[in-house]
Design a protein around this nucleic acid. Structure first.
Lengths: 226, 226
DNA sequence: GAATTTTCTTAATAATTCTTAATAATCGTT
DNA sequence: AACGATTATTAAGAATTATTAAGAAAATTC
């Protein structure tokens, strides 16, 4: 992993470089914004540590310039701890903001944190996109359901109810719980909607709806899958 | 975008919620780690703001637990500004660390910063002019689309709708939203135009338009690609 | 300016969700 | 075990929303 360190104070650049090298990162150095952009255009850079106060081209302007073409994580560095500056920096496209003087270990931790998201990206959602309950497979990525290999066509509402119960096996949901989770609103009194949906789901995923294997009733309370 | 706020101090939770709601985020609330994990298992959460000091299950333990299955961005919140705590938190899998008392606007800026990386995902390298969704490649430079290598001929209007949805994956657009974005004007009542265009796009990019892989319907709301 | 393509309109059809009501199962009480 | 009360299941259909087909209107191309 290559980290570009940008600051007009060479001592700071060097000391940061030493800490990062110790953690196994390759470091590149620049001493103002123009130099930083030059290096960026020629090298592969995975993260940038960018000081704000610099001659020629300051950190914020550099950040805005590089954001036109690159999407690499940027940690801003600044002597000012003013909130307004932090907000400005973060709004301009920074991923983090550290005020000087800083603890080198904290900076290293923040570098690692940003890069971790880079490397483990893509799996923003659940790590496993599939819930398996015996023959019932629920793919939460493409919202598809198969039963013993056979594709099951569920309506959107039916799918959401099934996914809710499948995600929380053994937990019992009352009709009202389901309503809240799926519709995001309280139940209307004397409502039978959930029961109807449950029936439809059962018709599709149960061989014998009278003796449900998956979607079971808990009398007086609600429904569950276990 | 849904943000889960976790803190045993209800006042803090409520005030953060107010600020985030003002920015258009949906908020969910929990008052300890156990509650947080419950909510996480049932809801789609895009970012978590997590206090460290909490009864029952503290923030760090909660973070470690949820990292077993989820990869959602987490901003830690703590009264302690000790470097050691920050480092511990960041190492445990947090994406950011904010100390109390904090400036609400700064917190909002950090939330936006974390979510920006989430939404503009995939394009870690140069902002390539290409959107890739499985076999579907959309070249925003020359406005061309290919499906599994095959060239797809879309009309200008169809292309603009597809690009809009593809650029904002997972986001649901109502017919009116699409109208506003593509035509820059409000929808006429009782209009079916969007549905027809969607159908045409589907005919071209979906192998089986009945079971759309890319351009999906969200019943009662609109369309999306995810 | 004729031919072609693209966009929009209309209307019929299909799918999904919700409501209602009748029936069946379960439970607690006697 | 019989009873009434409660709760669940089921069926049928109404209301809502989406899909589809066909063709008219508008724009573009040659």
């Amino acid at each position: 992993m290559n980290v570009l360190i940008v600051d007009d104070d060479r001592e700071i650049v060097d000391s940061i470089a030493i800490f990062l090298s110790g953690e196994g990162y390759k470091t590149l150095k620049a001493y103002d914004g123009i130099e930083a952009l030059d290096i960026l255009s020629e090298n592969e850079v995975h993260l940038i540590i960018l000081d704000i106060m610099m001659p020629r081209l300051d950190g914020i302007k550099t950040l805005m310039k590089l954001r036109e073409s690159k999407n690499v994580p940027v940690i801003l560095l600044s002597a000012k701890s003013e909130d307004a500056d932090k907000i400005l920096g973060l709004t301009a496209g920074a991923d983090d903001y550290v005020t000087k003087p800083f603890n080198p270990s904290e900076l290293v931790a923040r570098v690692k944190s940003q890069l971790r998201r880079y490397t483990t990206l893509g799996s923003m959602e659940k790590k496993s996109g599939e819930i398996v309950i015996d023959g019932l497979h629920i793919n939460t990525e493409n919202k598809t359901v198969t039963l013993d290999g056979e594709d099951i066509r569920l309506t959107p509402m039916e799918y959401r109810i099934l996914e809710l119960l499948a995600k929380n096996r053994k937990r019992v949901f009352s009709a009202d719980d389901i309503y809240r989770n799926v519709w995001n609103e309280a139940t209307v009194v004397g409502d039978n909607t959930i029961a109807v949906h449950v029936r439809h789901i059962r018709e599709k995923i149960e061989i014998n709806p009278k003796e449900p294997k998956y979607l079971k009733v808990v009398w007086g309370i609600g429904y569950k899958i276990d």
